[in-house]
Simulated scan of single mutants.
Amino acid sequence: MADILYTYKDSVYANITNKCNCSCTFCIRSLRDGVGSADNLWHEKNPTKDEVLNAIRNYDFSGYKELVFCGYGEPTCELDTLLEAAELVKKEFGLKTRLNTNGLGNEENNRNIVPELSKVIDSVSISLNAPDAAKYQEVSRPKYENGFDKMVDFAVKCKEQIKDVKWSIVDVLPEQDIEKCKELSEKNGIQLRIRHYS
């Protein structure tokens, strides 16, 4: 089985699924099999909820500050596993939890999942990827129509119920797109993180 938990810097990451509802042009999945301490993040089949929970129960979290749901798939595609794993790590290990997401979890689950997330997730990082719908469609290639608007709506809903919400972009975007992303962030009151693309 591929790694369910792996580390990067001072965080532990949970790779709970390889399912994804986007096919981003820059996705790291097309470049290599692993990241951080993990050599292989490709599951032959998705781990079961029990496998994820057991991996957490048997992990030594000493020295780590948070558990981040981020792997080679979109965590909200396995929402039940995500919610139970987040609750477990908070209750049994006292860790903070973060969700790295493409922001399309409401569409994936056919409902507003933010109230459920807000009970067990401390911070959310949402991939903005582009400043407008046309460029988002071109870069993120979501399986849903109007993906950009749905992602923005998800971010706004998260901001209403979760204290720490950020959008992220990579620094390879043209300068004018970065400026437009900053304007969008200011308009919606959501912090923008510009990540270095390696």
Rank of each mutant, 00 (worst) to 15 (best):
A2N: 06
D3P: 02
D3M: 10
I4F: 15
Y6D: 01
K9P: 02
K9W: 04
Y13S: 10
Y13Q: 01
I16H: 07
I16C: 09
I16F: 07
T17F: 12
T17E: 09
T17K: 14
C24F: 11
T25Y: 06
S30H: 08
S30A: 12
G34K: 01
G34S: 14
S37W: 05
S37K: 11
N40I: 11
L41H: 13
W42C: 05
H43K: 09
E44P: 06
N46R: 06
T48D: 04
K49W: 08
K49C: 14
K49Q: 14
D50I: 08
D50A: 15
E51A: 14
V52G: 07
L53V: 05
N54K: 13
I56H: 07
R57D: 09
N58E: 15
Y59S: 03
Y59K: 12
V68E: 00
F69W: 08
C70Y: 05
Y72P: 09
G73W: 01
G73Q: 04
E74N: 11
P75I: 04
P75H: 06
E78P: 09
E78D: 15
D80Q: 14
T81W: 02
L82P: 04
L82D: 01
A85P: 08
A85Q: 05
L88K: 10
L88W: 05
L88R: 07
K90V: 13
G94M: 02
L95H: 06
L95F: 06
K96Y: 00
T97Y: 03
R98N: 07
N102W: 08
G103N: 03
G105P: 03
N109V: 12
R111E: 15
V114L: 04
E116K: 15
I121V: 11
D122E: 09
S123N: 00
S125W: 00
I126C: 04
S127W: 02
K135S: 07
V139F: 14
V139E: 08
V139M: 09
R141Q: 15
R141M: 14
P142L: 03
K143G: 06
K143T: 07
N146A: 13
F148Y: 11
V152C: 04
F154Y: 11
F154T: 00
F154P: 02
V156I: 13
K157C: 04
C158W: 00
K159T: 02
Q161G: 02
Q161M: 07
I162R: 01
I162W: 00
K163Q: 04
D164W: 00
D164P: 00
I169D: 02
V172R: 04
Q176I: 09
I178D: 00
K180Y: 03
C181T: 09
K182T: 01
K182H: 06
L184S: 07
G189F: 12
G189H: 07
R193T: 08
H196G: 15
S198D: 14
